[in-house]
């Protein structure tokens, strides 16, 4: 069995995340038509790696957890549901992907990276002090974010024929977005006090590498 240490280092090197004293669950699949489901209660880390088409991944965690899904191929679907103080990562390369992240609690972190056409990313966070980031490159992307609570942050970078819908309810929330090359634009709805919005829409020539 291959060592998990390099994989976890790669997945979690970008940001800090809740340290878990719980278990580690890992699934690796290659080939088409695969499905993977992971469920953890208590602190833990779960990772799914899928290479191929028609893949499907679901992760459900309760506690202080970390969840990671990496998919390469077309027609993929990934869904993460977490309750507690968690970190969630989804990385999809290919076309026709969809990703959803749902987090309940405080100090959660959610990251979605998608490259390819026809992607859809949806992030929902309930609680305070949460942070969500979505990076999409390619045409025909769609991203939607809903945050309910205070002190939340949402960051979105998109390039291609993107569409962005953002809803934030609560105080001291912030939204930061960059869009390149797209004509579909964005709709942002925020309610609360002390809100901060920064939007940059730029031509394709200024396209920068997404993410950190």
């Amino acid at each position: 069995m291959r060592s998990l240490v390099p994989l976890m280092s790669l997945a979690f090197a970008l940001v800090s995340f809740p340290v878990s004293a719980g278990g580690l669950a890992y699934i690796e699949q290659s080939g088409g038509g695969n499905r993977a489901v992971q469920s953890q209660t208590g602190g833990g880390s779960a990772e799914i790696r899928q290479t191929g088409s028609g893949d499907y991944a679901i992760q459900t965690q309760t506690g202080a957890n970390t969840a990671s899904v990496m998919q390469n191929g077309s027609g993929n679907w990934a869904s993460q549901t977490q309750n507690g103080s968690n970190a969630a990562y989804i990385s999809q390369a290919g076309s026709g992907n969809r990703a959803t992240q749902m987090q309940d609690g405080a100090a959660n972190y959610a990251l979605i990276r998608q490259s390819g056409g026809g992607n859809v990313a949806i992030a929902v966070q309930n609680g305070s002090g949460n942070r969500s980031e979505t990076y999409q490159t390619g045409g025909g992307n769609y991203s939607s974010s809903l945050q309910q609570g205070s002190g939340n942050q949402f960051t979105s970078h998109q390039s291609g024929g993107e569409r962005l819908i953002v809803d934030q309810i609560g105080n001291n929330n912030s939204f930061d977005s960059r869009q390149y090359d797209g004509s579909l634009g964005m709709t942002v709805r925020m309610a609360g006090n002390g809100l901060d919005i920064k939007v940059m829409q730029l031509p394709p020539a200024a396209t920068a590498a997404p993410g950190k």
């Binding site: 105080n171 869009q179 797209g182 004509s183 579909l184 634009g185 964005m186 709709t187 942002v188 709805r189 925020m190 309610a191 609360g192 006090n193 002390g194 809100l195 901060d196 919005i197 920064k198 939007v199 940059m200 829409q201 730029l202 031509p203 200024a206």
Partner: peptide, 19 residues
Amino acid sequence: HKAYITESGNYNTNTQDQT
């Protein structure tokens, strides 16, 4: 580009740059 932003509340800020 197209941006449509609504904010309700007090002491909010909004900055948009379009090129």
